[in-house]
Design a protein around this nucleic acid. Structure first.
Lengths: 339, 339
DNA sequence: TTGTATGCGTTATCAG
DNA sequence: CTGATAACGCATACAA
C-alpha cells in the first residue's frame, strides 16, 4: 500500500500534526523541520488521501452540474465546465437529469442525501422540475442557477441577457430593411425563450413595425421544430423576409428547410439564430446569431457556488451578463422588389 | 446535523453492525430486526455518508473519463457518458486533458495520486502522451482505452472498426461510379486516421481504381483542415468527383468550401465523412458518413473498467465493434459526362 | 514551535 | 443471528 501521513511523520521524526502543517501550508513550522518533512514526502512518494480529508472535513469537494439533456446548447456549457475543471480542489460532476426518468431521480437523490456533492449548478430547464425543487428545499444543499425561469432574490443565479440580445438582433434586421420578420418561439417553461420573444416584440414596437401574430411561431427549440416552423412561415400568404430562430438549433432547422425548398439564403430570405453554437459558423452561408458569454456565465456560476460553500459571500448573487450580435452570411437586406 | 448509523442503531435498539448489514443487504438478519432498522432509517431520514465508505473501503467509487478537448467528436462521447452516469455507485468524472497544459497535468496527477479516482477511461489522442503513460505506469491505476493508437494485449480497449468503415464507404462510392475519390487524411498519431486511410486504399485496390497520391490530402481533422484540403483538391488539374473526409468535421469543412465555390453537392461532387456527428444530418443536403456505435463503445469501456476494478475479469479485454454506413444527400453518382 | 488525543461515519474482524 | 471493537487516514482542539 501507499504511504500515509504517519509514515511520513515517522521518517521525518516528527508528529503527524507537523506533517499536516507542512502539507496544508500552515504557519509555525521551522525551516529545518519543514525540509525534513518535504524530503520524507519525496522519498515515500506520499500524497494525502482525499477520501480521508473528505470525511473529516465533512465536505465532498465536489460540485454537481445538472444538465437536462445532451443537446447542443448543453454541449457548449459542458465544454466550458471542463475547462474550469482544472481549478481548485473541487471536482465537477456532470450529471444529466431527466425529470421523467426514475433512475435519474434516484441518482440525484443519492448524490445529495449521501453528501457526495456539496452543491449544485442547475441549468434550464431543470429548475422547473418539482421533484428537484423539493429535494433542494428539503436537503438544504446550496445551489446556483443558470438562466432560471423564475428570478427571485433568494436564489443565486447567473444569466445572459436574452431580452437585450433578441432586441438587438431584431433591431438589426429592421435596420437592414426587413419588416416581415418571423420569430420562432420556444417553450414557455423556459425563461430564456420568453425573454427572447419579448425582446423581439419590443424592437418591433420601438421601430413601429407592425407585429403580426402569424409570424410568431411556437415550436420546440430544436432542429425539427425550426424545420417545421420555417415551412409553415413560408407557406403564408405574405411570407417573411427574415426568420429569427429563438435558438440556433431551430434556426439551423429553418435554414435547412429553406435550402430544401430552393429558397436562397440570404438573397431571398435572411435567417438568424440565438446561442452561437459552434456549428453556426460551420454551416453555409454562416448563421448570424446572438452570443451569450457562456464561458463567463458558467465560470461565474461555479465560482459563486464555491464562494457560498466556503462561506465567503460572493460579490453578487444575481448576475446578468450582456449578449452580443455575431453577424455572418445568413442575413442581408431583403429583396428590393418587396419594398 | 444529519443522522448517522449510530443514531439508527440506538433507535432500532441494535448495534451499528446490524444496521450496516441491513443497509448493504447482507444476510444474517432476522426479519424482525431488519424491519426495526428500516423503520428507524425512515424516521431519522438516514442516508449513509459516502465519504466514510470511500475511506474505509479504500475506494473512490469514481472513474475518470479523459477527454482531449471539447470538440464535436468528444461531445458525442460525452453525451453517452452522461447517459450511463446513472448506473451503480460509481460517479463519472469527466476531465479534459491537454498535454501541453501544466494545470491539466497537475490536476490529473492529483486525481490519481490522491486516490480520488479508481480508474480511467482514456480517449484518443490522450493515449499518445508520454506524461500520461508514465503516470499510469507508475501509479498502477487501472484504465481502459477507447480506440488506442497502439493495440497491445496488455492494454484493455474498446474500438470501432475504422478500417472496415472506410473500406465500405470507399467501396460504395466506387460502385456509384466514382473513380477520382479524394481522401482527407488526419494526423498520424491517431490510430483511427491511419486505419481509415488504409481502408480507403484497400478498397481502391480491390476494385482496381488507380490510386493517386495527390488525392490523399493530409490535414487536421477539423473544419478548417477540411476546408483547405477541399480547395486544394478542387484546384487539381483532374479534380475529384468525390471527397471522403476522414472525419465529419473535415467533411463539413469540405462541404462548406464547395458551397462557397459554387460547386453543387452532390450533383457535381459528392462528399462524405466519418463519425456521424449530430450535425451531419443538420447540414444541407445531409452528410453521408460512417457511424461508429459510440454508445456501445463508451458503455462497454466503462463496464470493462468497472469489471476490472471489482476484480471480476471482463468477458473480453479487447473489443472491436463494426461500423456502418449512413447514406444521406451529399453523395450521388458522378456527372455522366466525366465517364 | 511542536505534539497528543479525539473524532469523522463507515466497514470488517472475530468472538459470543 | 448479533455485537463490541478496531481500523481507515486525516484534521483539529488543546496542551506542552
Amino acid at each position: 500500500m501507499s504511504a500515509t501521513i504517519k509514515d511520513v511523520a515517522e521518517l521525518a521524526q516528527c508528529s503527524i500534526k507537523t506533517v499536516s502543517r507542512v502539507i496544508n501550508a500552515e504557519p509555525h513550522v521551522t525551516e529545518a523541520t519543514r525540509n525534513r518533512v518535504l524530503a520524507a514526502i519525496q522519498t515515500l512518494d506520499y500524497a494525502p488521501n482525499f477520501s480521508a480529508r473528505r470525511l473529516v472535513q465533512r465536505r465532498a469537494y465536489m460540485i454537481c452540474v445538472l444538465l437536462h439533456e445532451a443537446g447542443f446548447y448543453q454541449s457548449t456549457i459542458l465544454s466550458k465546465v471542463l475547462d474550469i475543471g482544472y481549478q481548485q480542489d473541487y471536482d465537477i460532476l456532470i450529471q444529466s437529469y431527466y425529470p421523467s426518468h426514475t433512475k435519474s431521480k434516484e441518482k440525484l437523490e443519492a448524490l445529495v442525501r449521501e453528501r457526495r456533492v456539496d452543491g449544485l449548478v442547475i441549468t434550464p430547464p431543470c429548475d422547473v422540475d418539482p421533484f428537484l425543487s423539493d429535494l433542494l428545499a428539503q436537503s438544504g444543499v446550496p445551489y446556483v442557477q443558470i438562466t432560471p425561469l423564475n428570478r427571485t432574490p433568494e436564489v443565486p443565479y447567473v444569466a445572459g441577457d436574452d431580452y437585450q440580445g433578441a432586441y438587438l438582433m431584431t433591431e438589426r434586421l429592421i435596420l437592414m430593411g426587413h419588416w416581415r420578420i418571423a420569430f420562432l418561439s420556444g417553450p414557455r417553461n423556459h425563461r430564456a425563450s420568453i425573454d427572447r420573444l419579448y425582446g423581439y416584440k419590443a424592437a418591433l414596437e420601438v421601430y413601429r413595425v407592425p407585429a403580426r401574430d402569424d409570424l410568431v411561431l411556437e415550436s420546440l427549440y430544436n432542429f425539427d421544430g425550426g424545420h417545421n416552423a420555417a415551412r409553415i412561415a413560408m407557406g403564408l400568404a405574405e411570407p417573411p423576409t427574415a426568420i429569427f430562430g429563438g435558438s440556433d438549433e431551430a434556426a439551423l432547422g429553418a435554414l435547412f428547410a429553406l435550402q430544401e425548398m430552393g429558397v436562397k439564403v440570404p438573397e431571398e430570405v435572411s435567417v438568424c439564430g440565438f446561442d452561437d453554437l459552434p456549428q453556426a459558423q460551420q454551416v453555409w452561408p454562416g448563421l448570424s446569431t446572438v452570443a451569450h458569454p457562456v464561458d463567463e456565465i458558467v465560470e461565474r456560476a461555479i465560482r459563486m457556488l464555491i464562494s457560498i460553500l466556503t462561506k465567503r459571500e460572493p460579490e453578487s448573487r444575481q448576475v446578468v451578463l450582456p449578449s452580443r450580435l455575431v453577424m455572418r452570411g445568413s442575413t442581408a437586406a431583403p429583396p428590393p422588389d418587396l419594398n
